[in-house]
Amino acid sequence: MSKPNFSLEVFPPKTAATTLSLWKASQELAPFKPEFISVTCGAGGNAPGDTTKEVALVMAQQAHCPVAAHMTCVSGSREELLQLARDYWQSNIRHIVALRGDMPGQERYTPRADGFAYADELVAALKEVADFDISVAGYPEGHPDSSSMDKELEYLKKKADAGANRIITQFFFDPEVFLRYRDRVAAAGIKAEVVPGLLPVLNFKKMTAFAARCQTSVPEFLHKMFEGVEAEDIDHRLLAMNILSHQITRLHTEGVNFFHLYTLNESMLTRHVCRWIRSAF
């Protein structure tokens, strides 16, 4: 069985404190040689004030590992996004995470009249700019806007057929959820690699609220595990590490050899997970 590998995800900082947290995490995590580090967009994509591009360019110079930049359809017009892609390619950023995105302040998604309507269009356009390595999103428990999983997979296939190399999933907690999803993706004739996205539980209460918005189920046993445990308690961190190690071990026994960790710009828990992956298999 092959040794597992992993990638990491960070988000652009908005304050001096979060900037310090990001660079501290990056310096501590880069030595574990992730396959790549991806930099997300802020709310609303690459809107004015979003620093995805700046962070990605600096990280590409300092992290000493490949960097992937997120791009969303809501971030700009077609030409603005294509120019951004050309800038990334010229700056030696050759991996894009292509997403639809959500318009801030709107309950339902409305495509920009001057932009790409959905991620499959963005993927196809990026491939015309250059031979980018492209990741797209997958939703094991369905996207909140999807009417059914069949429709979700139909759209996922469009993204893969447009040139996506990899599908990074929304976070989940039950490994069986991912394994069932992987089977359905394969049955739909989608050839792109399916990578499980894993979320460290840094604050259980905040995580459950976020999971509800993302349509991600939180198993009842997790509620019982964290009952009465505060986020700052060492027990909280130990439980979070236990959850991640269980997910990775279970999925690895089913042939999963690549994992994407949503770091939340935190280094301690993620650092121990990275060290464990590198040494335990």
Rank of each mutant, 00 (worst) to 15 (best):
G228W: 03
S217K: 12
A212C: 10
V229T: 09
S217I: 06
G228V: 04
K224F: 07
D233H: 05
V229H: 01
L239A: 08
H223S: 09
D233Y: 00
H223W: 12
L239H: 08
A212N: 12
M225P: 05
A231C: 04
K224H: 11
A240H: 00
Q215R: 15
A240D: 00
F226H: 01
A211K: 04
V218W: 06
C214V: 06
I234W: 07
K224S: 12
A240C: 07
A209V: 13
Q215T: 12
L222G: 05
A231T: 05
M241F: 13
I234S: 13
A211H: 05
V229A: 01
P219W: 00
A240L: 03
V218K: 08
H236E: 00
Q215C: 14
V229M: 02
L222I: 07
E232F: 10
P219I: 01
E227P: 05
E227I: 02
C214P: 03
E220L: 12
L239R: 09
G228N: 11
G228M: 03
E230P: 01
D233R: 02
E220A: 13
M241L: 15
L239F: 10
E220R: 09
C214Q: 11
D233C: 02
M241G: 13
A211P: 04
V218M: 09
K224A: 13
L239G: 02
E220Q: 14
H223Y: 14
F226P: 03
M225R: 14
E220V: 12
A212G: 12
M241T: 11
C214F: 07
H223E: 07
A209T: 13
F226Q: 04
E220S: 12
M225W: 13
R213D: 13
A231G: 01
A211E: 01
M225H: 11
S217Y: 06
E232G: 06
I234N: 09
A240W: 00
A211L: 09
I234Y: 07
I234G: 03
V229C: 01
T216D: 02
E220W: 08
S217G: 05
H236G: 02
C214G: 08
P219H: 02
K224W: 06
M225Q: 14
E230F: 06
R237F: 10
F221D: 15
F210T: 08
R237L: 10
E230L: 09
K224Q: 13
H236Y: 01
F210C: 02
H223F: 14
A211W: 03
F210G: 02
R237H: 13
T216Q: 06
I234K: 12
E227H: 12
A212K: 14
V229R: 01
F210Q: 09
R213V: 10
L222H: 05
T216M: 08
L238E: 11
V218D: 04
P219R: 02
V218L: 07
F221K: 13
M241V: 11
A240P: 02
M225D: 14
R237V: 03
R213H: 15
R213G: 13
R213T: 14
F210V: 09
M241Q: 15
F226Y: 15
A240R: 00
E220C: 06
R237G: 08
F221W: 15
